[in-house]
């Protein structure tokens, strides 16, 4: 995740709870996962390769759906990144609508 905001990075201590929300670009269906951080630190080559793959898929999807040029979209990517591992304890349906926030799984 982005390390450009020092306040966020400062809060990534093991044991603290993190929440991560992601959305499907094509449907805007969204999911939020929460749980305690188990480790955070510098991203290694494996992390960066995985991130690069995911970023490419994300940008391609945005371009496909909204026709924004990929080279312009890259402006919003983080410059510095940090690797975070956490245990997913709770999952919520975060799609807009009356069921937003409904728990999907527990434990």
């Amino acid at each position: 995740m982005s390390a450009d905001d020092e306040r966020v990075v400062a809060g990534l201590d093991p044991g603290r709870t993190i929440a991560v929300t992601g959305a499907d670009i094509r449907t805007v269906a969204a999911v939020q996962v929460k749980g305690p951080i188990t480790w955070s630190g510098p991203a290694d080559e494996t992390d960066l390769a995985l991130m690069a793959h995911q970023v490419d898929r994300f940008l391609e999807a945005v371009h496909e759906v909204d026709r924004n040029p990929v080279d312009q979209l890259r402006r919003m990517l983080p410059i510095e990144v940090v690797s975070v591992e956490f245990e997913v304890v709770e999952t919520f349906d975060q799609s807009a609508g009356p069921e937003a926030g409904a728990r999907v799984t527990s434990g």
Binding site: V28, D66, G97
Partner: peptide, 16 residues
């Protein structure tokens, strides 16, 4: 951004 807005609206619609 009608495409984006429609997607978002459709997402809410599916909940109903």
């Amino acid at each position: 951004h009608l495409g984006q807005m429609t997607k978002y609206s459709n997402s809410m619609r599916s909940g109903y």
